[in-house]
Design a protein around this nucleic acid. Structure first.
Lengths: 176, 176
DNA sequence: CCTATTACAGATAGAAATTATCCACGATAA
DNA sequence: TTATCGTGGATAATTTCTATCTGTAATAGG
């Protein structure tokens, strides 16, 4: 059982975007640089987050990414599912039916007990992830992490974030 | 996040072996036939279970596999870890250190909060698996499953299990 | 002692998923 | 108009998973 490296990248990027001010954005290239990742590949993951409505993207120069909603309303489960997909880790192949003794389908109405047990365990996993909000990660980082690292991170965000005109996706335009 | 197919095979095989009598054994080829699996590949997984002391193997004709201990003392976690390995699913690459701003190692004494959160979730997953015993799986199958399937499975075991002389690994030889 | 059966270890190969790069395209701020 | 940026597709490199085959050691039975 393994998680792709994209999950780590996605969480860290989302956490970074959490400290972007207001409706400003941060380019994907800056995020990649911030973690020493391949820009072209990271964009794929950011794209998955955008498709899952965890991030919003703004095209054009001065464009980039920002959170689609408050960090309090984004959980680690949201991110993990966006990157890894929603299918359970254990996929029941119903191998109990594949033996030499062929019974008709009516003998297998009950779902496989092995499958049920594995899915039950995974639901516990997901429940814990669903309880952890992105804001918790950020808060823990600010409180427990090394001040130097936190300051460096904030400075990096400060340097690369770019203000937007308006319209954080369907918000009151508030135009003059 | 995906589990290999070997996990499903391993659990079903272990469950099957749980109903072989006494210190009798069942050949790997019979187990493979029982689930329509490739014999040569299944042996790899059975081997991993043997290395993890979940199964015992007896070489030679009339040889095969049996549980290394009572089904009550084998958990799904034992089997999953034996097949998938003991490393956690989330592997922290410490990408927070890889940015353009280089801080010395003293800034990263605290473990990564993202990593901690992911490992915490996985520990919940493992805890549930650790609570599920192989005997539970078998009991549930006997009680809830279709009687025909259960009977067919028992008959198959009956037909392929083979009694052993003695010595279920370091037991009182009890020789005449 | 001989033979057949079985587990075991290693090499190997094919399939599939993951990781990574590149380019053409549309959007848009300056 | 131009340069910057996200999007999507095509593609390739790498790794992991799945599967097979070989030879070797162990051993029950004749």
């Amino acid at each position: 059982m393994k998680l792709g490296e994209g999950v780590e990248a996605a969480i860290h990027c989302a956490a970074t975007l959490a400290s972007v001010a207001g409706n400003s954005t941060m380019p994907g290239a800056a995020l990649a640089e911030s973690f020493g990742l391949s820009p072209s590949y990271l964009l794929k993951h950011l794209n998955q987050l955008t498709a899952a409505r965890i991030l919003e993207s703004v095209p054009g120069p001065a464009g980039g990414y920002r959170l689609a909603r408050a960090a309090e309303r984004i959980t680690l489960l949201d991110i993990v599912l966006a990157i890894e997909g929603r299918e359970p880790a254990f996929r029941c192949g119903e191998i109990r039916r594949n033996g030499p003794v062929k019974l008709d389908a009516s003998a297998y109405i009950k779902p496989c007990g092995v499958n049920a047990a594995m899915l039950w365990a995974e639901s516990a996993y997901r429940a814990v992830l669903a309880e952890t909000r992105l804001s918790d990660i950020v808060a823990e980082y600010a409180a427990e992490g090394d001040p130097r690292a936190f300051a460096a991170s904030c400075a990096f965000v400060e340097r690369h974030q770019r203000p937007q005109k308006s319209n954080p996706t369907k918000q009151t335009p508030a135009r003059s």
